[in-house]
């Protein structure tokens, strides 16, 4: 049951949730707006990886989710340093 729910309910809603911040990424008035939008997209990507691991019974996707989260964290920190020291 949980795999059917994840396939037919969770993944479409998560695809909407990962498409919404693209608006802010394109339109955002300042650099930190875009960085926050990218951060949210990375977090939703972790959730999509986890749901995919649940659907296909492939635990290797969980490792990919961890790596994506690490890259998103380091990217956000780097962008924060860049935006602050640029003045």
């Amino acid at each position: 049951m949980v795999q059917m729910i994840a396939l037919w309910v969770i993944l479409p809603l998560l695809s909407i949730a990962v498409a919404l911040p693209v608006f802010r990424l394109v339109r955002g008035p300042s650099l930190p707006d875009r960085v926050v939008a990218l951060d949210v997209m990375g977090t939703v990507a972790i959730a999509i990886f986890a749901a995919y691991a649940l659907i296909n019974d492939q635990p290797a996707f969980l490792d990919a989710a961890l790596v994506v989260g690490l890259i998103g964290f380091i990217g956000t920190i780097a962008f924060a340093y860049y935006a602050e020291r640029r003045l």
């Binding site: 994840a6 969770i10 809603l13 949730a17 919404l20 911040p21 300042s30 926050v36 949210v40």
Partner: peptide, 28 residues
């Protein structure tokens, strides 16, 4: 799963709809 998806949808809507970088950051 359903609770988590609802919260992630809320985060996406908050990123689009909230008026300020600091308010958007709290949603994010």
């Amino acid at each position: 799963l359903i609770i988590g998806t609802f919260l992630l949808l809320l985060a996406g809507i908050g990123i689009v709809r909230l008026p300020d970088i600091f308010l958007r950051m709290s949603a994010a």
